[in-house]
Simulated assay, not measured.
Amino acid sequence: MKNITPFKIEVDQTVLNDLQNRLQHTRWPDEPEGADWNYGTNPTYLKELVTYWQKDYDWRKHESELNTLPHFKAEIDGINIHFIHVKGKGQNPKPLLLTHGWPDSFYRFYKVIPLLTDPESAGGNSEQSFDLIIPSLPGFGFSDRVALNTDQVAVLWAKLMKILGYDQYYAAGGDIGAIVTKSLANQQPDRVIAIHLTDVGYPNGQEDWANMSAAEQEFGQFIQQWWYTEGAYNMIQSTKPQTLGYGLNDSPAGLAAWIIEKFNSWSDTHGNIENSFTKDELLTNIMIYWVSQTINTSIRTYLENARAGWSGEPSPSAEYVKTPSAVSIFPAEAPVPIEWAKRMVNVKRFNKMEKGGHFAALEVPDTWVNELRSFFYSL
């Protein structure tokens, strides 16, 4: 197919040898007494994870497992986009575009691929399957190291789906992926049939407070407090990402600390990050950043989005989405009220889940899949 080439993940052994050397020579900072996760990443857990990374984690095993999936690259507007394309079983699978966020990767969706493409294998209905298209955002993983704003990414996604021959399709995402999905729906209203989101955007202080419901006002106060306590990463990544990039691209322990802090804070861990993710899952996601050297371009995406917002130009990602939408809110996420969701998208299904968090497809894959399948196959 034009512009499409098969791709295989093949990390040179010198990269892995260098990683081992850097891990072995980590220069650890001091830590306050009883630090836990109260000052950032838990020093005790990070040292445990780095030791496991050195002695027990097997990248070649995970590389081989990832390569059992059909990987491709497509050159679109001069940018090489990595994506996974898995055809669904059954008579008429629906095409579904899945977009990840930060600080995760296409790996966010590895558990849901068999559930969505071959539901019968998991005890589901064989006639409710999907063709999955799972790209890596520009500047992430094995896509080119180019940072784009979410509206620009949506343009690339529309072209990718056209190249693949899908005239109409469904789309889903969370975090940056949710913003891209909203933008895509607004830019391609005749092609995007319906969307599923795990967040819809947040109040920014510019709203007409008097016309917001009590639940929305409470939500706005929650978000304001959240930015004060958890939003420092966003501020630096939206203003001076290059300064941060030097350390994260040079130190694997530093990269791990920056990423797993978010996996801990944003997930339904109940006090133990491994209630939600295994060490191997955490490290495989980190490795995708490390071996591709994309942490710097991934965080620079925040500045590109900020600049797009400062420009004053209309943004499809910020506009109300008329496309039929499902919104699933997981308990470790921001507590979005339905009134706010309805301000942002054309809500046809809204559920608050009992378990899970920001990386729901990785953390609670069965629940997340059920939400998508129930909505998309009800239309």
Rank of each mutant, 00 (worst) to 15 (best):
I4C: 10
I4T: 14
P6Y: 10
P6I: 12
K8M: 06
Q24E: 15
P29A: 11
P32H: 12
Y39S: 13
N42I: 05
P43A: 10
T44R: 11
Y45E: 14
Y52T: 01
H62V: 07
L66Y: 12
N67R: 09
P70C: 11
H71M: 11
I76T: 05
I76C: 10
D77A: 15
H82Q: 11
F83P: 00
F83D: 11
V86A: 12
K87P: 10
G90F: 08
G90I: 01
P95D: 08
T99F: 08
D104A: 14
F109V: 09
Y110W: 13
V112L: 04
I113M: 11
L116Y: 04
P119H: 00
E120N: 06
S121G: 08
S121F: 03
A122I: 05
A122N: 03
N125R: 00
Q128Y: 00
F130K: 04
I134Y: 09
P135S: 07
L137Q: 07
P138T: 09
G139T: 07
G141A: 14
D144M: 04
D151A: 13
V153R: 01
A154G: 11
A154W: 00
L156K: 07
L156R: 04
W157L: 13
W157R: 10
K159F: 07
K159P: 11
M161T: 02
M161E: 02
Y169I: 08
Y170H: 13
Y170F: 15
G173D: 02
G173L: 08
G177D: 03
A178M: 03
V180R: 02
K182H: 05
S183C: 09
L184C: 02
Q187G: 08
D190N: 15
N204D: 15
G205C: 10
S213C: 01
G220K: 01
Q221A: 14
Q221N: 13
W226A: 15
W226V: 06
W227H: 14
E230W: 03
A232S: 14
N234Y: 10
Q237F: 15
G247P: 03
N249W: 05
D250M: 07
W258M: 05
I259S: 03
I260P: 05
E261V: 10
K262C: 12
F263R: 08
W266T: 01
D268K: 04
H270S: 14
K279L: 07
N285V: 07
M287I: 01
I295Q: 10
I295R: 07
N296L: 13
T301F: 14
T301W: 12
N305F: 05
A306D: 12
P314T: 03
K322Y: 13
S325E: 00
V327N: 00
V327D: 00
P331K: 04
E333D: 15
A341R: 00
A341T: 02
A360G: 11
V364S: 01
L379I: 13
